[in-house]
Write a protein that binds this DNA or RNA. Structure first.
Lengths: 252, 252
DNA sequence: CGGGCCGTTGACACAAATCAATGTCCGTGG
DNA sequence: CCACGGACATTGATTTGTGTCAACGGCCCG
């Protein structure tokens, strides 16, 4: 039985608890989930499309992308996942992968057996509910990406992407300069935004005029409100700033 | 207590059972869910963005779209839902709507109280699981839309959209001509595909060359395989043709 | 009969893609 | 320690798919 105090899963539980109410006993059960650690090299697919999984993945460290592609092999990233995320929690309920998962920087991944997750969900309805809820937040992010790629120009797309990642990294975007690591290349940024690497490069230069730069895989935002304006960003959909009384528990 | 034999929810249960294993008792419980019928006129929002819901919606008849928009008020449709779908089943677990729901044709909607759905999910883990699974299929459709809008040209986007809807309407796309009602305007089609109404019109004319037409809100596909080729369509992600042994039940 | 909604068509503008070359950094092996 | 190759970023010239603007037509319905 793993020791909960030193569990890698603390950030995951913390994230669940920002949206759902879980008892300490339930939190404890999640923290002591069995796991297998895996180091994944940059640009390596650790889940392939079509694969039938018997475990879900958890990101301890690194940046992970969900990759799809069109018939010409041009890739489209349909989700980004940072430390503390479970990129394919949905595989618990839908074990055939429809996209690949790739490490975009050197990453530490935990493989958690479906059997354990399912057992937990069956025994604790509140945990099942919290899992379901977290999957739905990912889904809302996805809907925003459709809007982003479908109805915004290049500058707004990149600005929106940077705002979203700033919030998810909790780079406290209030006043002053916001800065954080975003370990991806301009090429991968293009694959997120449905653009060309060349055009991403030009557009990033445009964004410098409003005090936002991306160099050496590091984002620096000098004027947060200017960037949110350009990116038409409203963080509501991320569901990450709920007040305690807004957190939900259905069962019991 | 509603009568299960004449329940409007039969198509919904049938859809759940295509992917999940439910006992007849469980199916019965879903069929007898309490409901309030609502007629909704074309172009009417029956759920507004930001609204806090105490019920989920079920489409008995008609076509429903999930609408988002950018800062200039240009709309992007992020999901389509046909008869038998629950467009916002996720609201059970996430009651604040982040998008609007609009009837795209005259529609009959059932409002089903969250309380009833939650009670069912709590009492029957297999139902909770089936609900979660169905939400994840919607999510995979969304991921495909990101690819569609991000990495395909106008012709492929519309072809893909038509293929998807053909499959979802079960317009048995095997051999021969496929035809079905798709009660939306070219303008709304543009809002799905991230295009301009004018360009949709021109692109549809292109598609006529490969035997696909859309006139009077009716799709007619003479050469299914040609359309799937142009639209790079692979129906796998819809999870609607699972063999019985592929259907899943985790609990019990 | 008239007014909307929707579809259709043409001329033109423009954002982004494409093609191509050069630059910079960095790790690696001779 | 330097030469080399590879990954990534940068820049310019040009093309192209799609957007924009504008006008017209058909059809339904009041």
């Amino acid at each position: 039985m793993p020791n909960s105090a030193q569990s890698n899963l603390h950030p995951f539980v913390a994230r669940l608890c920002r949206r759902s109410k879980l008892t300490t006993a339930e939190q404890e059960r999640i923290l002591t989930l069995p796991e297998r650690v895996k180091q994944v090299a940059t640009n390596h697919d650790f889940v392939e499309s079509g694969e039938i999984l018997d475990h879900a993945c958890y990101v301890v460290e690194g940046l992970v992308g969900r990759f799809d592609q069109n018939a010409r092999g041009e890739r489209q990233i349909t989700a980004l996942h940072i430390a503390g995320d479970m990129p394919d929690l949905h595989s618990v309920v839908q074990p055939t992968a429809t996209s690949a998962l790739q490490a975009m920087s050197t990453s530490t991944i935990l493989q958690i057996p479906h059997a354990a997750l399912r057992g937990l969900a069956a025994a604790h309805p509140a945990i099942a509910e919290a899992f379901w809820r977290d999957c739905m937040v990912d889904s809302m992010v996805l809907a925003q990406w459709v809007v982003n790629v479908g109805r915004r120009d290049a500058q707004a797309r990149l600005a929106h992407l940077l705002c979203e990642m700033a919030c998810r990294y909790k780079a406290t975007p209030v006043e002053g300069v916001v800065a954080f690591e975003l370990p991806m290349s301009q090429w991968q940024m293009a694959e997120c935004a449905g653009l060309t690497p060349v055009h991403v490069n030009r557009t990033l230069k445009q964004l410098q005029k409003i005090g936002t730069s991306f160099r050496n895989r590091r984002v620096r935002i000098e004027d947060w409100s200017a960037l949110t304006r350009v990116g038409e960003f409203d963080r509501g959909y991320l569901q990450d700033d709920l007040r305690p009384e807004e957190r939900i528990r259905i069962v019991n």
